[in-house]
Design a protein around this nucleic acid. Sequence first.
DNA 1: CGAAACGTTGACTTGTTTCAATAACTGTGG
DNA 2: CCACAGTTATTGAAACAAGTCAACGTTTCG
Lengths: 250, 250
Amino acid sequence: MTEPGSALSLQDSPFARKLSAFVRLSPGDLAVMSDLYRLRRRFAVGVDMIHQGQTGQGAYVLASGWASSYKILRSGSRQIVGVQIPGDFLGLRSVLFRTSDHNVEPVTPVQASVIRQQDLLTAFTETPRLATAVLWAASRDEAMTVERLVDLGRRTATERMAHFLLELGARLRLVGLGDRAGYACPLSQYVLADALGLSAVHVNRVLRELREDGLLTFQKGRVIFDDYEALVDLASFDRAYLDHEGPLLT
Amino acid sequence: MTEPGSALSLQDSPFARKLSAFVRLSPGDLAVMSDLYRLRRRFAVGVDMIHQGQTGQGAYVLASGWASSYKILRSGSRQIVGVQIPGDFLGLRSVLFRTSDHNVEPVTPVQASVIRQQDLLTAFTETPRLATAVLWAASRDEAMTVERLVDLGRRTATERMAHFLLELGARLRLVGLGDRAGYACPLSQYVLADALGLSAVHVNRVLRELREDGLLTFQKGRVIFDDYEALVDLASFDRAYLDHEGPLLT
DNA sequence: CGAAACGTTGACTTGTTTCAATAACTGTGG
DNA sequence: CCACAGTTATTGAAACAAGTCAACGTTTCG
């Protein structure tokens, strides 16, 4: 597939594509990124990438595959706090200074670039534009956490589902893994349930309802937007915060 | 009350107390803090301190009074994303680089120190220990957001309430505004409802239940822990993440 | 081919909301 | 200092969204 070291493959890497959506990156920026991007690791489904409570864990950038961050409660139930797709940073905060307070587990087989703390800090001082871009990405992640919080607190199951799948669509488009028509989505209904604070059974019903209402179809690992505008309206999805074209900072 | 400029009052300020719980601050650190801490502003209840969508907003440190960060939905309902108490940073992220994606409103009359972007950055380069402490506080805030997300997704109304009030208690103790017995709490049941994703009516019922079960009493603006251990157990409250004694880093 | 994971559907139960009405506070002006 | 208005707290009854239990169909993969 892609050769980790080459500048050409880098420009096409999900990470570079995503950051480019915010900041126009120079060849120099891309070169520094290639240093970060050298080491690769693979993770199989069912093997935690990051453990709750462990210190000094690595950070990663997802190169391919999907992952989920979650917490397990004493009752045995699980709440997924975030879903990571190619190009997403993983464990950025734990690099900066702290033990992780959640687990991260692959949803599909994952390939990830290992980011060492020292490399990251060096990259930041050498290329402020890159630093800005990474901080922007971190801020976007936080905004998504807050948006999920609003979902769980004040939106119905149907609204949550629509909002979640729209948001995923916008994120995937940013890294070239989807378009306005839809995208490939490896999340099972159980995973969706744990992400949206619902039961798997109810997820199934909600998806059926959305399908029967001609809004979206989620079948056989594909999400298809049957009526994008109606969905945006139903979910009161804020297009501005994820759904833009071209770099914001040139 | 306290004189903003003096080193003595600073050591007793909620902000200094909170940061001291994590990092032992030198007289030099405190001196730099006093520069940050100079300008004060007052806000009345009902007047937003920070508006959604505005850029280049100030950041504040709460000196006295409580505030809440929230989002309003099209339906008119509200989700409170966080509650700020004295010593808490407000709008830290927006200083660093972005427009705010939520509103902040006082819950009680508020006095806040204005933090200018430049002052903050200077302070960071001059006193790395202070920077560490502030970043720790930011990380703690993020952990709390995640914890709230888990609350809304996977915990019952009673567990949420217990967890929320325990967390508030631990935070208040850190700034000297409460002890293991309880604390003064100016939040109305409507505010609690919007924070916990419940209806005000149900908040009332949950509080009654907790009272009748001898776990905690919330009446006339005071929270009293009737059985702290049982509450911690009910809420599966993680004492480690907030509930510690003495600085973690000396 | 068989087993395990995932998806689908129905019947029933439960936690929470909504609506409605009343009581207890809080602060303000007369 | 009291009366009044507005906000906040309390409680009951009915409606509803989502959960649970259970059974069965479908896909995936070793």
